[in-house]
Write a protein that binds this DNA or RNA. Sequence first.
RNA 1: UACCCCGUGGUGUAACGGUAACACAGCGCCCUUUGGAGGCGUUAUUCUUGGUUCGAAUCCAAGCGGGGUAGCCA
Length: 555
Amino acid sequence: MTTTTDHPSDFIRDIVADDLRAGKYKQICARFPPEPNGYVHIGHAKSICLNFGITREFGGICNIRMDDTNPIKEEAEYVESIMTDVRWLIDGWADKHVGGAPFYASDYFDRFYEHAVDLIRKGKAYVCDMTSEETDAYRRLGKASHFRDRSIEENLDLFARMKAGKFADGARTLRAKIDVNAANVWLRDPVLYRIRHASHHRTGDKWCIYPMYDWAHTLSDYIEGITHSVCTLEFEVHRPLYDWILSALELPEPRPHQYEFARLNLTYSVMSKRKLIQLVNEKLVNGWDDPRMLTISGLRRRGVTASALRAFAYNVGITKYPSTTDMAVLEHTMRDEFNRNAARRLAVLRPIKIVLTNYPEGKIEELDAINNPEDPKAGMRKVPFSRELYIESDDFMETPPPKYFRLRPGGEVRLKYAYIIKCDEVVKDDAGKVIELRCTVDLDSKSGGPTAARKIKGTIHWVSAAQAIDAEVRLYDRLFSVPEPDASGDFKSLINPNSLEVVTAKCEPALATAHPEERYQFERLGYFALDPDSTREKQVWNRTITLRDTWAKVK
RNA sequence: UACCCCGUGGUGUAACGGUAACACAGCGCCCUUUGGAGGCGUUAUUCUUGGUUCGAAUCCAAGCGGGGUAGCCA
């Protein structure tokens, strides 16, 4: 059984436990540092669950910090969405461990600047006038910039004028003076500040120089008293620079330390922000919260719960091996939770009408139905039964294949919670399409009746026609039709054409009072959640995930 | 090419020098008024070669394979 109550074990948690045991830190402090240039997705969820998981397990705090150092890519809209999504994900789980939120790297711009001036005074940074192309070329060759040996006074003056807006974009940079020949290229005098005359979503036009990631991130961590700065593998080679900055500035202990883990990859999906933005901008999906998107807002809209997402993060684990998790694991995690919690209801997605010729016209019975066989406390409900019903069109075949044990001409099937019926007659329209089935019902076969125990292989779901309520149901499937849409060049051509199908379903009356927070199993079909598009007049349902379908495999 | 990191069933993880295990997926059976759930069984694993050791998935070395980095993005 999957739970999130067990404390996971992984190399990061081992380090944290060791540090605490050794008294290296009094309390641990982690952080989740998104750049507000897109929506957070399930890969971020892994990171959020790691960072907040650590702090709740070891008694610390975790800051949410917008890493907003690049004004031309970042927007306030994204800050909003990120906060909403993170809070939703950790609500009731780690929300007590949020360090006062949100923090912004941009709030530290003045301090970053002071530290930069300090670095120049220490002779460990210089203003460089080379173009970006020259810088690249020199760095590749391990060659020193012509401007590397400027005097401290000149550097101070130039840097002040950079800040004052005296130079054009790209004209100069502030660079750390480390080692132009270092084996690790991030130590070859990396750029710390660049000139960008652009409005920032929070600081407006106050600045025209903006700090680079390494400078801002390291100092933000230090300023906030972060103990364990956990990031993904691609920052591994930046760690020596992270450590260099802290020691070059001679910042007092305790200092933060950076650790890296492998980001989440999932089959049948793309995860890069760039590709998600393309899907949205090119209208290949209906926005960031399209239920087919693996954004947190998309998953939420689809009906996935925060606890299921957390369970998924737990199941996936934390390592340094760049693995790809099977989408089936995510799907299993959903089913596992919903099976335990979701109330069962009867709904027919693709209705075909049935008339019970020997059942009295006008008679309505209220039959007992079990709300959740996994949870006796969920109780029972009444379901109306009458002469005219709908069943799933998949549950009838005129010439069925072997091992098909649903309804067929002359065959019998059990209607769940009701009677056994026999198909006597198939009614077709002029085009030969089956439009109605005329059946007889074994009136003794109801629960508790004399023939209730008759062995019938098939049991199908149904809805009484007169009492049924119509609802729009959106049937979602995996967005991509191949396991690795990233592998080839054009991921957009690999979108699953059947990733969304919309039907008008016939639902049992109890569904009229369905609650948006609840998850429902439409028996034999899958788990469903109400979409925000629902109105009082018309419900809109999203299929979160189908039930396992072993029959589909037999076919 | 250089530097860094990583290699455990099909997939994802555990085992922290002492019997290689769990989950997902697959297959088979049982059960079932959900072809769901559940139960039972089953297939299949330490990249290679050396070394250290009484003993190696674990430590060391080399090789091979994979990933990352080489933006004035983060």
